[in-house]
């Protein structure tokens, strides 16, 4: 790991001022340090070489509180995945989020990794993670996964990059219509998770729309009907300590046998967590049945296409979604 300076500012504004004009920390620049589980691996692999790390764990303005209130559930950016997984209120009211946090990484990483950092982690694509490969996402000309080893890669071709977003909680939070509170030099703004994430594009080769001098302060889940239920299902190559091949988060409320509201998000299929609006349109207002779920699963993958080596993800995603919907509506899994 290359040498860097370590700063412990006394206020969040001071930390943000250090970010101002410092670039994105790829070569030189400043990066924020919270849990460090992704940042230090990027630095160990020499993918980034910031000149300065700014410790934000001890700032009074940032916290790890998980609080329910009139505005819904607010989760401080410093809450660890372990705290999310173990929080009794999250377990009882948002089991989908506790499940997603608990299925991520390992106990040690969950004890270290913060929710803010989890949303900001970079993809696991082996070309991206190899410092010898100057891929498009790192400022190069080519995405080597497109014509290469792409068995873990995206089904939705929405960016020059076909890496998939690695977060589990992000998929559950997208299905929960979560919002991200960001603080920058001119104050705070709150945006939907759906607009916080965006497939990388020319001029913004990263997975979020967060400005380089903004800090995630909190994530908020707006209040929802008490009868809504959610589930997070994750397909992995092994039973633990693996990133999702495909994951499904679904939140659904039944009213007199009909689906009154539904939200579906997919992980492992795109460079950003994927909001499956087409599936929601098929489902909402309809009476639950295996046939309906099959049509919703087909709709969820509208526009998806396999690369040479990831075709297995199409039936996998559909099967996971059918299973999630059956689970939430008490239908038998066919």
């Amino acid at each position: 790991m290359r040498a860097f300076a370590y700063a412990s500012p006394r206020s969040l504004d001071e930390a943000i001022a250090l970010l101002d004009g410092a670039g994105d920390g790829h070569a030189g620049g400043t990066r924020l340090l919270a849990g460090g589980t992704d940042l230090l691996t990027l630095m160990q692999a020499d993918l980034i070489a910031p000149e300065r790390l700014v410790d934000i764990k001890r700032l009074a303005e940032l916290d790890d509180r998980i609080e329910d209130g009139a505005e819904g559930l607010t989760i401080g950016a410093l809450a660890t995945l372990a705290e999310l997984e173990e929080d009794p209120f999250v377990q009882s009211r948002y089991p989908i989020l506790a499940e997603a946090a608990g299925l991520a990484a390992t106990p040690q990483l969950r004890n270290m990794a913060t929710l803010g950092g989890n949303l900001l982690q970079r993809p696991r694509c082996w070309y991206f993670r190899d410092s010898r490969v100057h891929c498009w996402l790192k400022g190069g000309d080519l995405c080597y996964a497109r014509g290469g080893e792409n068995q873990h890669h995206a089904l939705f071709d929405v960016s020059p990059c076909v890496a998939v977003h690695p977060s589990d909680p992000a998929v559950a939070l997208l299905a929960l219509d979560a919002r991200v509170r960001l603080r920058g030099p001119s104050g705070e703004r709150e945006i939907s998770l759906g607009s916080f994430f965006a497939p990388p594009e020319d001029g913004r080769r990263k997975e979020t729309t967060q400005a380089d001098n903004e800090v995630i302060v909190a994530v908020r889940i707006p209040p929802r009907h008490a009868d809504a239920r959610g589930v997070y299902l994750k397909a992995m190559e092994r039973k633990a300590w693996a990133f999702a091949l495909v994951s499904v988060a679904a939140v659904l409320r039944l009213e007199a046998g009909r689906i009154a509201e539904v939200s579906v998000a997919l992980g492992g299929v795109a460079p950003a967590p994927w909001h499956a609006r087409d599936a929601e349109q098929v489902l909402v207002g309809a009476e639950s049945s295996a046939d309906l779920f099959a049509r919703a699963a087909d709709a969820a993958l509208t526009g998806a296409g396999a690369l040479a080596k990831n075709g297995y993800k199409l039936p996998l995603a559909k099967a996971l979604l059918r299973r999630a919907l059956a689970d939430l509506t008490g239908q038998p899994v066919d």
């Binding site: 370590y6 340090l33 230090l40 790390l53 410790d55 372990a82 040690q108 270290m112």
Partner: peptide, 18 residues
């Protein structure tokens, strides 16, 4: 793996200054 404030953590991903 070591235990920091009661929690198992990877000491390779923690900075000593931290």
């Amino acid at each position: 793996t070591v235990i920091v404030d009661g929690r198992a953590m990877y000491s390779c991903l923690l900075l000593a200054v931290d």
